[in-house]
């Protein structure tokens, strides 16, 4: 679970070390990665929204 999210986090940055990738290949399931990807995209959107709220607050 945590591994999946860590891999998706690195994917959003676009970087993955070959060591981390080897672990991914052993542990991760593609369906989990897709779900985690969508969840992380939503989290990303919410984070941006919160940042925007914070900046535009008087």
């Amino acid at each position: 679970m945590w591994d999946t999210f860590r891999a998706v986090f690195w994917a959003f940055l676009g970087i993955r070390s070959s060591q981390g990738y080897d672990e991914d290949r052993k542990k991760l399931k593609i369906h989990h990665v897709i779900i985690a990807g969508v969840v992380c995209a939503l989290v990303f959107v919410v984070m941006l929204l919160m940042l925007v709220k914070f900046i535009t607050a008087k």
């Binding site: 998706v8 994917a11 676009g14 993955r16 070959s18 990807g37 969508v38 995209a41």
Partner: peptide, 19 residues
């Protein structure tokens, strides 16, 4: 260089392109 990174980056570009 960074084949895995390339795959991961392509996937995340695709997701982010919707927002």
């Amino acid at each position: 260089f960074g084949y895995a990174s390339m795959v991961y980056a392509t996937a995340s570009i695709a997701i982010l392109s919707f927002i």
